[in-house]
């Protein structure tokens, strides 16, 4: 959705595995190089089965050498974008956009707290390097499953020293957001990228700290929930439909393919336009959006169909369709 950007032909120059399931891609775009600001992403045209589609990936590092670097985590249950990327070999032709930015880093703040979970490190890593170069006051909290999964940890340790705190969930480690926020200087900002659970925790902790809402910056990627993605069934009594949503498809995509008229805009859990009313569920609604508040999510009255899913059961929803008045 954002800004002035153009599609460019590009070549995949090289790949390098950062962890067992995170691969770095170096991409040389044709034409004039548009340098990325921290927090930027590029869009990459991908092929999902028979369908062309587009994926957004955060740019990694300053890219001063005229190559865009992105890091892609291979997700067996993703919608297929990561699998496509992982099949690419150096020399492959790509279509990419010039950078866009939904997650810009504000300059000259008195203090910064950066928080990353898993592959959410990609924009945060770039921000950390930029802030370190500026000599800004900052800390980085970085949570992963195991030390093996901690992409960029060595590079970050070298630059940040003890300003980097790592936590590994396999060892029971947790990021101490509350105390890190408490020690943030007045006027300091928090930047978070990671799975929805981490975002929700950051939002709650930030709010509880009494800090101004605009000081919390975050970026979402709508494919991470509290539960693994699995097939679930959507029932729409009004339309007499029963639709299966496979793990690698969104509910919104599945509904649209089944001919259900929907409106949507961001398709990543931010705008709330694709939300439908929940009539019933025998599973757990895995809310993966940032549109509804925690209280609204607990009520389970509606869900954002572009990202949210159901774990361990089916769901019955209503659509805004009504019979014609004449």
């Amino acid at each position: 959705m954002a800004g002035e950007r153009e599609w460019r032909q590009a070549e995949l120059r090289a790949t390098r595995d950062l962890t067992p399931d995170i691969r770095l891609f170096e991409i040389a775009p044709a034409g004039e190089f548009v340098p990325p600001a921290p927090g930027s992403h590029i869009n990459v045209a991908v092929q999902i089965g028979e369908r062309p589609d587009v994926r957004s990936y955060s740019i990694v590092g300053p890219c001063a050498d005229g190559l865009y670097r992105i890091a892609v985590k291979l997700l067996p249950l993703s919608r297929g974008g990561s699998a496509h990327m992982w099949r690419l070999k150096p020399g492959a032709r790509l279509s990419v956009t010039t950078p866009g930015n939904h997650f810009p880093l504000a300059l000259h703040r008195p203090d910064y707290l950066l928080v990353a979970g898993g592959i959410g490190i990609t924009p945060i890593y770039t921000m950390a390097l930029a802030l370190a170069r500026e000599g800004a006051r900052m800390r980085l909290l970085y949570g992963c499953r195991t030390p093996r999964d901690a992409a960029f940890a060595e590079e970050l340790r070298a630059v940040l020293g003890d300003r980097l705190s790592l936590a590994f969930s396999q060892d029971g480690g947790r990021l101490d957001l509350a105390s890190a926020i408490a020690s943030l200087a007045p006027g300091g900002e928090l930047y978070v990228c990671g799975p929805i659970g981490l975002l929700e925790e950051a939002k709650r902790t930030w709010r509880d700290s009494g800090r101004p809402v605009d000081g919390l910056r975050f970026e979402t990627f709508g494919n991470s929930g509290r539960f693994a993605s699995e097939t679930f069934t959507v029932r729409i009594p009004r339309l007499g439909l029963e639709i299966a949503v496979p793990p690698n498809r969104t509910m919104l995509d599945a509904l649209e393919e089944a001919g259900v008229a929907m409106i949507s805009d961001c398709r990543r859990g931010e705008c709330g336009l694709c939300a439908l009313r929940i009539l019933d569920t025998d599973g757990i609604v895995d809310h993966r959006d940032v549109f509804f508040s925690e209280e609204e999510k607990a009520e389970n009255a509606k869900l954002c169909t572009c990202v949210s899913r159901v774990a361990g059961g089916s769901i019955t929803v209503d659509t805004p369709d009504r019979p014609a008045p004449w």
Binding site: M1, A2, G3, E4, D265, C266, C271, G272, L273, F291
Partner: peptide, 10 residues
Amino acid sequence: RMPFYNLNID
């Protein structure tokens, strides 16, 4: 070339 952003109210 600037897009409209859409909100819930839209």
